[in-house]
Amino acid sequence: MSRPEDTLPPDLFYNDTESRKYTTSSRIQRIQSDMTHRALSLLSLASPSLILDIGCGSGLSGEILSQTPQYGTPGGPHVWIGLDISASMLGVALEKDVDGDLFLADAGQGVPFRPGTFDAAISISAIQWLCNAETSEDSPAGRLSRFFGGLYASLRRGGRAVCQFYPKNETQKKMVAQAAIKAGFGAGLLEDDEGTKNAKTYLVLTVGGGDLDGDITGVVRGMDSVHVMARPGAKAAKRGGDIVKGSRGWILKKKEQMERKGKVVKPSSKYTGRKRRVQF
């Protein structure tokens, strides 16, 4: 099946007809609601919170966030704020009279909220759209880094985010996860129904500090098919062991690399990497 991400940018793809089709299809509704419930269980919110919904679309997931615990929303009813780039989708949401606040915004341009605003963030089938850039002055990496940077800042310490997305391939999955880690999140990828056509990928993100149970590994403890990709602090430790650029060790390493490539390399001696005497 072709991916809508490869055909058109999201604001053009989700036009009036496509938005209506998306919102009224009972199959999509069921899948979206399953995924929202799954994401909510990963967020494990105990009390009514302020939640950011990235790519809220017509508010399919938002409707679930506004529900009370009796209707299966833990800790609800939550107050949510939704961002979406498609005006048609938001139009459908307005018609449905959803409870959350809606914003016409591109998540790839950042998240325009002050630091520490949200308790949690949720995103259902949206962030794969960030892997496409529509103009030459923009790049997928730039869009992802602005998005995750903005998201990291706008979450409170100890906050969590769960992003369900449809990666095109392994590379894209890795690119998204790496962008999140670079922004400072503790990140983990969780896959439901791995290896099948119904595979669902969840990126579970945590912001350090606060009352969280350790890092991301606390969220996914005891779950199957979870790969923890980075732990806060692990990166810093690795960087400390690197060889300083320009030092003798670095030069020797580079020479070895070049030699392995089959280049002609001058033999090393005790003078290799030494400073020249200051000439009078």
Binding site: L83, L94, D101, L102, F103, L104, A105, P112, E137, R146
Partner: peptide
């Protein structure tokens, strides 16, 4: 408009 703020920015301001 209709309670929905427009936060789309032109490319040069991002």
């Amino acid at each position: 408009m209709e309670g929905v703020p427009n936060f789309l920015l032109p490319g040069h301001l991002v």
